[in-house]
């Protein structure tokens, strides 16, 4: 990471990090909510809707993060990722499959040659409460097994306690452990409580080397709300304007319907801009969303409301 912001930050003290983060412009909660609500009234119909649905499918990180996950479950998910709609081969494949680190090898094998990436959560997901060594081992193992993307969680306790340097250094260390794998940094915005904190955590993660900033683990409510995604999209927009480096955004958790997905795309389009309207720069972390997207896709092409029995469960 040659850019100057990062270089400056890696040598920073907690004090200088704090003064930078607390010097960022504030976020007015009511205003941010109003803007997100206003954008969510956009009416995306007909041809625009068809485009949006296919784009959203291509952006999905199809996710299973349960204690009960098995190789069988992961293989089924991989199959779905490559051919989301068995009845309609024109349905695009998703961006990636997202699993726990011990199941990366299974996913990699199942997805070999498909073009679908394998993302692994790591760093003591979802709480992040583990020694750094353990987090790094977790990360290296996932990368060694072939994960192309690592979804790490930040230490929210350290963040809320004001120990920004600890959060920063962990991200830097995990980024290093990632090697060539892309690093998505999960802020767990539901635990950060304020939009000011979301903006600060976004900048902290970006300066520490994140390739993506991601809202949530999906295990804490609220997860990816529209105003949170709005604030994070503003952050990546501003970060690029300042450093020239483009960072991706991934809302995850709570995005269940096509309507939710399209609202997210409208936010991307009107806040960050269309440069981000690509799976390389925007992902939707979800599981049940995919079937709803497929159903709406069928509805658009056939004009008939489909039933859930006609789509595969994973």
């Amino acid at each position: 990471m040659p850019d100057t912001a990062l270089a400056a930050a890696t040598t920073a003290s907690n004090t200088s990090l704090r003064s930078f983060l607390h010097g960022l412009p504030g976020v007015d909660e009511v205003g941010a909510r109003a803007r997100a609500a206003d954008l969510s009234t956009r009416s995306i119909k007909t041809s625009a809707k068809a485009q949006a649905i296919d784009l959203a499918i291509r952006m999905v990180d199809l996710t299973t993060l349960e204690g009960a996950d098995t190789p069988g479950k992961v293989r089924a998910l991989a199959g779905k990722a490559v051919h989301p709609d068995p009845a309609d081969p024109s349905a695009p494949r998703v961006a990636a499959v997202c699993v726990y680190s011990d199941l990366v090898a299974v996913a990699v094998e199942a997805l070999a040659g498909s073009g679908v990436g394998v993302a692994s959560v790591a760093t003591a997901f979802p709480s992040g409460r583990a020694p750094l060594e353990a987090k790094l081992v977790d990360t290296r193992r996932a990368v060694a097994d072939g994960a192309s993307e690592i979804d790490m969680v930040i230490d929210r306790g350290a963040f809320l306690a004001g120990d920004y340097l600890k959060v920063h250094e962990e991200i830097v260390a995990v980024k290093e452990a990632c090697g060539s794998a892309h690093l998505k940094v999960i802020l767990e915005t539901g635990e950060l409580a304020t939009y000011d904190n979301v903006r600060r955590a976004s900048w902290l993660a970006m300066r520490a080397g994140a390739d993506f900033i991601k809202t949530s683990t999906g295990k804490v409510s609220p997860a990816a709300t529209l105003p949170v995604t709005l604030v994070m999209l503003e952050a990546v927009r501003d970060f690029r304007a300042e450093t020239g480096r483009q960072i991706g955004v991934k809302p995850a958790g709570g995005i269940r319907t096509t309507k939710d997905a399209i609202k997210n795309l409208v936010l991307v389009n009107e806040v960050a801009g269309e440069d981000w309207l690509d799976p390389e720069w925007f992902r939707l972390g979800a599981s049940s969303l995919l079937n709803d997207l497929l159903m709406q896709r069928t509805k658009l092409t056939t004009g008939v409301y489909p039933g859930p029995d006609y789509y595969t469960l994973d």
Binding site: R42, S43, I44, K45, T46, S47, A48, K49, Q51, A52, L55, L265, N269, E274, L277, D278
Partner: peptide, 11 residues
């Protein structure tokens, strides 16, 4: 690449 997501008329 361009006009990835053009809103169709929604009258």
């Amino acid at each position: 690449a361009d006009k990835i997501f053009e809103y169709a008329p929604a009258p």
